[in-house]
């Protein structure tokens, strides 16, 4: 996994709560057996005016001019600002794959659904949780004529917007460590092979039916 560095990006404001993973990447694109190439179909049903199917030339499809991703101000955005319970519903990891493939590295919201939140870290995306009031303020700034740019410093756990006081955020220490170092979970777990085997031996004794 790519190491997560400090970086600066444009903020795209998606002013909806309870955005579900079906909306992030509709099911017809889940038929792919690959991990990449989902970016052009991110938010497909909101982003285009026609019905999308795998294999279409997305560059020729009619765009929905009212959808925020199509606003010229937010082209190249790397930060997605949104509302509560983002990523609810299906466990599909295609949702963070699509966000990542599009170019989003940071999401900011008051809350996330658990599985999605977890899937983000596995793909080098940082989901930042901020108080609803701060999110409201960021929405006010991000929807001005001039797009908002902010800097994310994971090491210091803060967001920096212009000259304003940095906004601190919480992040789980283990996940922060993995993101900063681009660590692969499986590699980490396999350092504990002996412990896993010891657990299995103990458990097979207590609950033999689980191993028969």
């Amino acid at each position: 996994m790519e190491k997560f560095e400090t970086f600066t990006g444009i903020v795209c404001p998606l002013d909806r709560s309870n955005v579900d993973t079906d909306a992030i990447i509709p099911k017809q694109f889940l038929k792919s057996i690959k991990r990449s190439g989902f970016g052009p179909n991110l938010f497909d049903e909101w982003r285009y005016l026609d019905h999308g199917e795998p294999g279409m030339d997305n560059s020729k499809r009619p765009l929905n001019p009212d959808f925020v991703l199509n606003d010229p101000r937010y082209q190249g955005a790397q930060v997605l600002l949104t509302r509560e319970n983002f990523g609810c519903g299906s466990s599909r990891e295609h949702a963070p794959w699509a966000l990542d493939d599009y170019g989003f590295r940071i999401i900011i919201a008051p809350s996330y659904a658990d599985i999605f939140f977890n899937n983000c870290f596995k793909n080098g995306i940082l989901p930042v949780v901020l108080d609803e009031k701060i999110v409201d303020e960021l929405f006010a700034q991000a929807t001005l004529e001039q797009a908002l740019s902010l800097t994310v410093d994971l090491q210091q756990q803060q967001l920096v917007v212009g000259d304003a006081e940095p906004i601190p955020f919480e992040v789980d220490p283990f996940r922060k460590h993995c993101l900063l170092n681009g660590l692969d979970d499986i590699g980490l777990t396999l350092q504990h092979v002996d412990l896993i085997k010891a657990y299995e031996a103990r458990r097979a004794d207590e609950a033999p039916w689980l191993f028969s």
């Binding site: 599909r92 963070p96 599985i115 977890n118 896993i196």
Partner: peptide
């Protein structure tokens, strides 16, 4: 019992464990 993403599917296949 709980749902997981594909990275965790791979993790369970490879290690029989989850973090």
């Amino acid at each position: 019992a709980f749902g997981i993403g594909t990275s965790e599917v791979e993790h369970v296949l490879a290690t029989q464990c989850l973090i």
